[in-house]
Design a protein around this nucleic acid. Sequence first.
DNA 1: GTTGAAATCTTCGATGA
DNA 2: TCATCGAAGATTTCAAC
Lengths: 158, 158
Amino acid sequence: MDAIDLKILKILQNKARIPNVEVARQVGMAPSAVLERIKKLELQGVIQGYEVRLNPERFNRSLIAFVTVRVREILSIRKTGREISEIEAVQEVHFLAGSDALMVKIRVSTPQELETLLITKIAAIQEVLSTETQIALSTFKESAKIPLNPRSKKNKEN
Amino acid sequence: MDAIDLKILKILQNKARIPNVEVARQVGMAPSAVLERIKKLELQGVIQGYEVRLNPERFNRSLIAFVTVRVREILSIRKTGREISEIEAVQEVHFLAGSDALMVKIRVSTPQELETLLITKIAAIQEVLSTETQIALSTFKESAKIPLNPRSKKNKEN
DNA sequence: GTTGAAATCTTCGATGA
DNA sequence: TCATCGAAGATTTCAAC
């Protein structure tokens, strides 16, 4: 992965549904060369996929909840994480260090829907010990973008 | 927005970089009709953009932190939210109900980088009162997908 | 929404730096 | 090895219906 790959990825991070020729123009290469690089990045697993970003409000999904889910046994946390991941309204599930718990991000339409989900889907899982919910009322930023700075030694400073 | 629009969006949620003709085939319409619908959805703000999903590990971004940021004055929470949103490593900023606080999701490469960011970028903001950080070591699910069940305007009843 | 045609884009093999 | 060229085949896009 070189500087040109990074440039291509930067362009795609801003606008993924863009013609190859346009990417080629912006990096100053032939379209076929760009195509080959993108294909390689997909094959190598650097590019995992392409997503459309929808406006949640238009689908009655403007209520976000961050739920900390504690499990009875740390040994079962992976299984529980996978089970919770299968719930459609769940957008993220992470394993939190040092607390036998998962961080779960949920998108729903109403507090009622959240209540139902917490009780009938999450608390219903055997291994779940308890949940703690924080509700987000508005969002300032929400993105999957990764900073693509070619990391040099000097960002240890500051 | 009708059932066909939802079908189109479902296809795009699974694979955004797909030819229009292919979408047209799957919904059983002419490509031009699909194009027109997609353009309209973009204009209406239903579709906010197209993103590439990159593998964070390939860019040294596998450490996720959820930081609860408390502000001194609830009145300044919007300004603080906007300021924190400008930090590149910050992927999400939400306003948490009932606690004069923001939920901030950060992606970094190392605990050192997180420390630097917390001290020099976040705590440095005048209005920030305190922060509380939880570190995620692994991820089970991470997606921006929204469930697209056909819930239209009139489902206030329920 | 459809059709059809022109413009544009994708893709691949051959070739060159 | 990696990029480019060029041409065939697909796709996008727009106007007419």
